[in-house]
Protein backbone atom coordinates (compact mmCIF):
# COMPACT_ATOMS: atom_id res chain seq x y z
CA UNK A 1 0.00 0.00 0.00
CA UNK A 2 2.48 2.54 1.15
CA UNK A 3 4.82 1.80 -1.69
CA UNK A 4 2.15 2.37 -4.30
CA UNK A 5 1.58 5.80 -2.97
CA UNK A 6 5.30 6.36 -3.06
CA UNK A 7 5.82 5.33 -6.66
CA UNK A 8 2.96 7.25 -8.12
CA UNK A 9 3.39 10.10 -5.75
CA UNK A 10 7.10 10.32 -6.47
CA UNK A 11 6.71 10.30 -10.21
CA UNK A 12 4.00 12.93 -10.10
CA UNK A 13 6.08 14.93 -7.66
CA UNK A 14 9.10 14.71 -9.91
CA UNK A 15 7.17 15.88 -12.93
CA UNK A 16 5.56 18.67 -10.96
CA UNK A 17 8.91 19.79 -9.58
CA UNK A 18 10.41 19.77 -13.04
CA UNK A 19 7.57 21.93 -14.31
CA UNK A 20 7.71 24.33 -11.38
CA UNK A 21 11.44 24.61 -11.91
CA UNK A 22 10.92 25.33 -15.59
CA UNK A 23 8.17 27.86 -14.94
CA UNK A 24 10.19 29.53 -12.24
CA UNK A 25 13.27 29.89 -14.38
CA UNK A 26 11.81 31.04 -17.64
CA UNK A 27 10.39 34.48 -17.87
CA UNK A 28 6.92 33.39 -18.84
CA UNK A 29 6.07 36.52 -20.79
CA UNK A 30 7.23 36.80 -24.40
CA UNK A 31 10.53 38.57 -24.92
CA UNK A 32 8.78 41.80 -25.70
CA UNK A 33 6.87 42.62 -22.56
CA UNK A 34 7.75 46.29 -22.54
CA UNK A 35 4.64 48.02 -23.76
CA UNK A 36 4.92 51.77 -24.11
CA UNK A 37 1.23 52.35 -24.68
CA UNK A 38 -0.26 48.87 -24.12
CA UNK A 39 -2.83 48.47 -26.91
CA UNK A 40 -6.12 46.87 -25.93
CA UNK A 41 -5.56 43.86 -28.20
CA UNK A 42 -1.78 43.51 -28.23
CA UNK A 43 -1.40 40.23 -30.14
CA UNK A 44 -0.94 40.39 -33.88
CA UNK A 45 -0.59 37.26 -36.00
CA UNK A 46 1.64 37.68 -39.05
CA UNK A 47 1.38 34.93 -41.62
CA UNK A 48 4.43 35.04 -43.81
CA UNK A 49 6.74 33.01 -45.97
CA UNK A 50 9.70 31.00 -44.80
CA UNK A 51 12.16 33.21 -46.68
CA UNK A 52 11.53 36.24 -44.44
CA UNK A 53 12.21 34.11 -41.38
CA UNK A 54 15.02 31.93 -42.70
CA UNK A 55 16.94 34.96 -43.94
CA UNK A 56 16.76 36.51 -40.46
CA UNK A 57 14.92 39.66 -41.62
CA UNK A 58 11.97 39.16 -39.27
CA UNK A 59 14.25 38.68 -36.28
CA UNK A 60 15.68 42.10 -37.09
CA UNK A 61 12.41 43.97 -37.74
CA UNK A 62 9.94 42.51 -35.24
CA UNK A 63 11.75 43.57 -32.04
CA UNK A 64 11.93 47.14 -33.36
CA UNK A 65 8.20 47.17 -34.08
CA UNK A 66 7.29 45.62 -30.74
CA UNK A 67 9.39 48.15 -28.86
CA UNK A 68 7.93 51.09 -30.78
CA UNK A 69 4.28 50.09 -30.70
CA UNK A 70 3.73 47.81 -27.73
CA UNK A 71 2.17 45.16 -29.95
CA UNK A 72 3.35 41.57 -29.82
CA UNK A 73 3.87 40.04 -33.24
CA UNK A 74 3.40 36.30 -33.65
CA UNK A 75 5.11 35.44 -36.91
CA UNK A 76 3.90 32.17 -38.41
CA UNK A 77 6.33 31.24 -41.17
CA UNK A 78 4.69 28.93 -43.68
CA UNK A 79 4.66 28.76 -47.46
CA UNK A 80 2.94 31.62 -49.28
CA UNK A 81 0.10 29.26 -50.23
CA UNK A 82 -0.61 28.45 -46.58
CA UNK A 83 -0.19 32.09 -45.53
CA UNK A 84 -2.76 33.22 -48.11
CA UNK A 85 -5.08 30.47 -46.93
CA UNK A 86 -4.74 31.71 -43.35
CA UNK A 87 -5.72 35.15 -44.63
CA UNK A 88 -8.75 33.75 -46.44
CA UNK A 89 -9.96 32.17 -43.20
CA UNK A 90 -9.24 35.19 -41.03
CA UNK A 91 -6.66 33.26 -38.99
CA UNK A 92 -4.05 35.96 -39.41
CA UNK A 93 -4.09 39.74 -39.02
CA UNK A 94 -1.38 40.60 -41.53
CA UNK A 95 0.16 38.82 -44.50
CA UNK A 96 3.69 39.37 -45.80
CA UNK A 97 3.93 37.25 -48.93
CA UNK A 98 5.40 37.09 -52.41
CA UNK A 99 2.97 35.77 -55.01
CA UNK A 100 1.38 38.88 -56.60
CA UNK A 101 -0.90 36.97 -58.98
CA UNK A 102 -2.45 34.93 -56.14
CA UNK A 103 -2.59 37.98 -53.88
CA UNK A 104 -4.59 39.85 -56.51
CA UNK A 105 -7.54 37.51 -55.99
CA UNK A 106 -7.61 38.35 -52.27
CA UNK A 107 -7.35 42.07 -52.96
CA UNK A 108 -10.16 41.89 -55.51
CA UNK A 109 -12.59 40.07 -53.24
CA UNK A 110 -11.74 42.37 -50.30
CA UNK A 111 -10.28 39.59 -48.14
CA UNK A 112 -7.30 41.87 -47.62
CA UNK A 113 -7.04 45.67 -47.46
CA UNK A 114 -4.25 48.22 -47.22
CA UNK A 115 -2.23 46.30 -49.83
CA UNK A 116 1.29 47.72 -49.94
CA UNK A 117 4.42 46.99 -51.91
CA UNK A 118 7.29 46.50 -49.43
CA UNK A 119 10.38 45.19 -51.12
CA UNK A 120 11.73 42.84 -53.72
CA UNK A 121 14.66 40.63 -54.29
CA UNK A 122 15.09 38.21 -57.10
CA UNK A 123 15.03 34.56 -57.88
CA UNK A 124 18.07 32.87 -59.33
CA UNK A 125 18.59 29.47 -60.87
CA UNK A 126 21.30 27.55 -59.06
CA UNK A 127 22.92 24.31 -60.07
CA UNK A 128 26.10 22.26 -59.87
CA UNK A 129 29.24 23.92 -61.22
CA UNK A 130 29.47 21.25 -63.94
CA UNK A 131 26.28 22.78 -65.40
CA UNK A 132 25.09 19.69 -67.33
CA UNK A 133 22.31 21.58 -69.15
CA UNK A 134 24.74 24.31 -70.23
CA UNK A 135 22.61 27.23 -69.09
CA UNK A 136 25.36 29.52 -67.79
CA UNK A 137 25.42 31.25 -71.17
CA UNK A 138 21.67 31.68 -71.33
CA UNK A 139 20.21 35.09 -70.59
CA UNK A 140 16.52 34.15 -70.55
CA UNK A 141 15.00 31.92 -67.94
CA UNK A 142 12.60 30.42 -70.50
CA UNK A 143 15.40 29.08 -72.67
CA UNK A 144 17.25 27.85 -69.57
CA UNK A 145 14.21 25.87 -68.46
CA UNK A 146 13.86 24.50 -71.99
CA UNK A 147 17.40 23.19 -72.04
CA UNK A 148 17.02 21.64 -68.56
CA UNK A 149 13.96 19.77 -69.84
CA UNK A 150 15.61 18.77 -73.13
CA UNK A 151 18.71 17.45 -71.37
CA UNK A 152 16.59 15.80 -68.72
CA UNK A 153 18.92 17.35 -66.14
CA UNK A 154 17.78 16.86 -62.58
CA UNK A 155 15.56 19.69 -61.34
CA UNK A 156 14.38 19.89 -57.72
CA UNK A 157 11.07 21.67 -57.30
CA UNK A 158 9.68 22.92 -53.99
CA UNK A 159 6.37 21.25 -54.79
CA UNK A 160 4.71 22.91 -51.78
CA UNK A 161 2.58 25.64 -53.33
CA UNK A 162 4.85 28.28 -51.81
CA UNK A 163 5.54 31.61 -53.50
CA UNK A 164 8.70 30.17 -55.00
CA UNK A 165 6.85 27.12 -56.28
CA UNK A 166 4.12 29.30 -57.79
CA UNK A 167 6.83 31.33 -59.53
CA UNK A 168 8.49 28.17 -60.81
CA UNK A 169 5.21 26.82 -62.20
CA UNK A 170 4.61 30.13 -63.98
CA UNK A 171 8.03 29.89 -65.57
CA UNK A 172 7.42 26.34 -66.82
CA UNK A 173 4.14 27.52 -68.30
CA UNK A 174 5.93 30.41 -70.01
CA UNK A 175 8.45 27.93 -71.40
CA UNK A 176 5.51 25.81 -72.58
CA UNK A 177 6.74 22.73 -70.77
CA UNK A 178 4.83 20.30 -68.54
CA UNK A 179 7.64 19.18 -66.26
CA UNK A 180 7.37 15.47 -65.53
CA UNK A 181 9.60 12.43 -65.44
CA UNK A 182 12.46 11.20 -63.32
CA UNK A 183 14.48 14.38 -63.94
CA UNK A 184 11.79 16.51 -62.26
CA UNK A 185 11.54 15.88 -58.52
CA UNK A 186 9.43 17.62 -55.90
CA UNK A 187 10.95 18.02 -52.45
CA UNK A 188 7.76 19.12 -50.70
CA UNK A 189 9.80 21.12 -48.21
CA UNK A 190 11.11 24.60 -47.53
CA UNK A 191 13.74 26.47 -49.53
CA UNK A 192 16.66 25.63 -47.26
CA UNK A 193 15.91 21.92 -47.35
CA UNK A 194 15.29 22.00 -51.11
CA UNK A 195 18.68 23.63 -51.65
CA UNK A 196 20.31 20.89 -49.58
CA UNK A 197 18.64 18.24 -51.72
CA UNK A 198 19.68 19.95 -54.94
CA UNK A 199 23.23 20.22 -53.64
CA UNK A 200 23.43 16.56 -52.60
CA UNK A 201 21.86 15.28 -55.83
CA UNK A 202 23.64 17.77 -58.10
CA UNK A 203 20.41 19.17 -59.48
CA UNK A 204 19.14 22.58 -60.49
CA UNK A 205 16.59 24.53 -58.52
CA UNK A 206 14.90 27.90 -58.45
CA UNK A 207 15.60 29.84 -55.26
CA UNK A 208 15.24 33.32 -53.87
CA UNK A 209 18.60 35.00 -53.60
CA UNK A 210 18.29 35.70 -49.86
CA UNK A 211 17.86 32.07 -48.84
CA UNK A 212 20.57 30.95 -51.25
CA UNK A 213 23.08 33.47 -49.89
CA UNK A 214 22.34 32.66 -46.27
CA UNK A 215 22.72 28.92 -46.97
CA UNK A 216 25.53 29.04 -49.51
CA UNK A 217 28.29 28.10 -47.08
CA UNK A 218 26.91 24.53 -46.93
CA UNK A 219 26.04 24.16 -50.60
CA UNK A 220 27.89 22.78 -53.62
CA UNK A 221 25.79 24.98 -55.88
CA UNK A 222 26.37 28.15 -57.80
CA UNK A 223 24.21 30.71 -59.51
CA UNK A 224 23.86 29.68 -63.16
CA UNK A 225 21.30 32.27 -64.24
CA UNK A 226 20.31 35.64 -62.81
CA UNK A 227 19.07 39.05 -63.87
CA UNK A 228 16.13 38.09 -66.10
CA UNK A 229 13.29 40.54 -65.46
CA UNK A 230 10.80 37.72 -65.02
CA UNK A 231 12.76 36.52 -61.97
CA UNK A 232 11.72 39.40 -59.72
CA UNK A 233 10.47 38.27 -56.32
CA UNK A 234 8.06 40.89 -55.05
CA UNK A 235 6.86 41.12 -51.45
CA UNK A 236 3.65 42.82 -50.39
CA UNK A 237 2.29 43.43 -46.92
CA UNK A 238 -1.47 43.64 -46.32
CA UNK A 239 -4.05 43.63 -43.58
CA UNK A 240 -6.70 40.95 -43.41
CA UNK A 241 -10.02 42.77 -43.71
CA UNK A 242 -11.49 43.24 -40.20
CA UNK A 243 -14.91 43.89 -41.73
CA UNK A 244 -14.94 40.33 -43.02
CA UNK A 245 -13.55 38.67 -39.91
CA UNK A 246 -14.59 40.12 -36.57
CA UNK A 247 -11.65 38.65 -34.65
CA UNK A 248 -8.98 40.26 -36.81
CA UNK A 249 -6.81 42.77 -34.98
CA UNK A 250 -7.45 45.82 -37.13
CA UNK A 251 -5.41 48.43 -35.25
CA UNK A 252 -2.44 46.11 -34.82
CA UNK A 253 -2.49 45.12 -38.48
CA UNK A 254 -2.58 48.72 -39.63
CA UNK A 255 0.28 49.63 -37.29
CA UNK A 256 2.45 46.87 -38.76
CA UNK A 257 1.70 47.79 -42.38
CA UNK A 258 2.53 51.44 -41.62
CA UNK A 259 5.71 50.29 -39.93
CA UNK A 260 6.87 48.20 -42.89
CA UNK A 261 6.55 51.07 -45.37
CA UNK A 262 8.02 53.71 -43.07
CA UNK A 263 11.20 55.28 -44.55
CA UNK A 264 13.37 54.34 -41.54
CA UNK A 265 12.35 50.70 -41.71
CA UNK A 266 12.72 50.67 -45.49
CA UNK A 267 16.31 51.74 -44.97
CA UNK A 268 16.89 48.91 -42.47
CA UNK A 269 15.43 46.44 -44.99
CA UNK A 270 17.80 47.76 -47.68
CA UNK A 271 20.83 47.45 -45.40
CA UNK A 272 19.92 44.04 -44.05
CA UNK A 273 22.52 41.38 -44.81
CA UNK A 274 25.15 43.79 -46.23
CA UNK A 275 27.54 43.23 -43.34
CA UNK A 276 27.29 39.46 -43.62
CA UNK A 277 27.03 38.79 -47.35
CA UNK A 278 28.48 41.95 -48.83
CA UNK A 279 25.24 42.63 -50.68
CA UNK A 280 21.63 43.45 -49.87
CA UNK A 281 19.20 40.58 -49.52
CA UNK A 282 16.13 42.74 -50.10
CA UNK A 283 15.55 46.02 -51.96
CA UNK A 284 13.02 48.42 -50.38
CA UNK A 285 10.19 49.48 -52.69
CA UNK A 286 7.55 51.25 -50.58
CA UNK A 287 5.64 53.85 -52.53
CA UNK A 288 6.70 52.46 -55.91
CA UNK A 289 4.46 50.76 -58.41
CA UNK A 290 4.99 47.12 -59.28
CA UNK A 291 5.26 47.96 -62.98
CA UNK A 292 8.22 50.27 -62.31
CA UNK A 293 10.44 47.59 -60.79
Amino acid sequence: MKRVHLTLFNSLLLLTLVIIFAVGCSSSAPASSVAPSAPTNPEVILATTTSTQDSGLLDELIPIFEKQSGYIIKPIAVGTGAALEMGKKGEADILLVHAPSSEKLLVDNKTVINYQLVMHNDFVIVGPSSDPAKIKNEKKVVSAFKSIAENQSLFISRGDDSGTHKMEKNLWTKADIQPAGTWYQESGSGMGQTLNIASEKEGYTLTDRATFLSNSKNLQLEIVLEGDASLLNIYHVMQVNPEKFSKVNSAGGKAFVDFMIHPDIQKIIGDFGKDKYGQSLFFPDAGKKMEDL
Binding site: L12, L15, T16, V18, I19, F21, A22, V23, C25, S26
Partner: peptide, 12 residues
Protein backbone atom coordinates in the same frame (compact mmCIF):
# COMPACT_ATOMS: atom_id res chain seq x y z
CA UNK B 1 13.12 25.34 -20.14
CA UNK B 2 10.05 25.91 -22.27
CA UNK B 3 10.44 22.44 -23.78
CA UNK B 4 10.64 20.96 -20.30
CA UNK B 5 7.67 22.96 -19.08
CA UNK B 6 5.47 22.15 -22.07
CA UNK B 7 6.28 18.45 -22.37
CA UNK B 8 6.22 17.94 -18.59
CA UNK B 9 2.80 19.57 -18.22
CA UNK B 10 1.49 17.62 -21.20
CA UNK B 11 2.70 14.34 -19.68
CA UNK B 12 1.13 15.25 -16.34
Amino acid sequence: LLTLKVSGTATL
